[in-house]
Design a protein around this nucleic acid. Sequence first.
DNA 1: TCATAATACTCTAGTGATAGAGTACTCTAC
DNA 2: GTAGAGTACTCTATCACTAGAGTATTATGA
Lengths: 184, 184
Amino acid sequence: MTNAELAILGLVAETPRHGYEIEQVLEQRNMRRWADIGFSSIYYLLSKLEKKGWISSQMQPAQGKGPARRVYSILPAGQQAWYQATLAALSGPGQANTAFLVGLAGLPGIRPQDAVAALRQYRRHVLERIQEVEQAWQGAENLPAFLQGMFEYSANALQTELDWLDRYIPRFESQITEQDDEDL
Amino acid sequence: MTNAELAILGLVAETPRHGYEIEQVLEQRNMRRWADIGFSSIYYLLSKLEKKGWISSQMQPAQGKGPARRVYSILPAGQQAWYQATLAALSGPGQANTAFLVGLAGLPGIRPQDAVAALRQYRRHVLERIQEVEQAWQGAENLPAFLQGMFEYSANALQTELDWLDRYIPRFESQITEQDDEDL
DNA sequence: TCATAATACTCTAGTGATAGAGTACTCTAC
DNA sequence: GTAGAGTACTCTATCACTAGAGTATTATGA
């Protein structure tokens, strides 16, 4: 099961939901960052999950504003699949930031000046993300324990990246100087 | 450009290579872990890169063992694309271990005992990975600076996860006890 | 009452990726 | 001289995903 499928299955398992609502929840909870799901994929994924027999749907006539909607509910098989897949995701093994590793693998072919500039840019992104996480953290009082854990996990990971960058960027800068020395 | 494309483009940029050779290099350098490329995708990706005008190919008659091979070389446009994409990958922003975050998001629906078992399993995976990285680190003497950096990056990230797990698992265990108390 | 905004999908066409089976050639060892 | 291992693809069928345009319904305010 992909991240996207598991995320949507999880939302339907929480409570019966229709597609448009899922779109909104993804937005509210800032889930797009990790479950990467485009708008048009939601309906595609819902029908896929239904075909698998994990969720079932029912039309609900128009009520309040907007037209009728198709509401999806979890089925026992879906509940089981969700449970197993969530445990699997929690038991790993995972891999951090593969895009950045691909970049690192290419470093020998990059001019040191450019590399340093890119890493500084990366550092700025990390700082931004740290602020985002801390704001969200402080904004939410009386968090359930698991959410505390998620914030801590992200905050720790980001801080570690920041530390690494602060040790590594100067080393790379000194390489530039050495090169200049050789050029003399 | 996807991770997979960038990784292969990078290998061709290093030196002209044929498909089967790329397969072997991916294996040797343990690149499958982050650039996730199946065997059958290599030829597909190579022809895709060629269509884009980033690499060109030439048949090389059989020499030594094995039949004739199609050797791919980087073109100027490909060199540029590789350079830009590598800088982009280095300047982020990246995202750590999304699968694990999806798992964490599902925690409220998981029985604490199961969650603790899964997290312990995850901890075991992290330990294994730490050992792998440290072995590879010690195995390679006189590393170029950039490789040092990659090892450090991975090692730091893994150590941070381990620390988090060691703080977080006990908290979760105490929740189990509280629940037991309530059950009385 | 009529335009606008918001709700809630639906459809099509296209790209991307992969498994797995099949083909063919060359060297080595017996 | 031939069986087997290793080299090096090639092809087909299928699944996965996404952008973007289109459709239809209801509430709201001027």
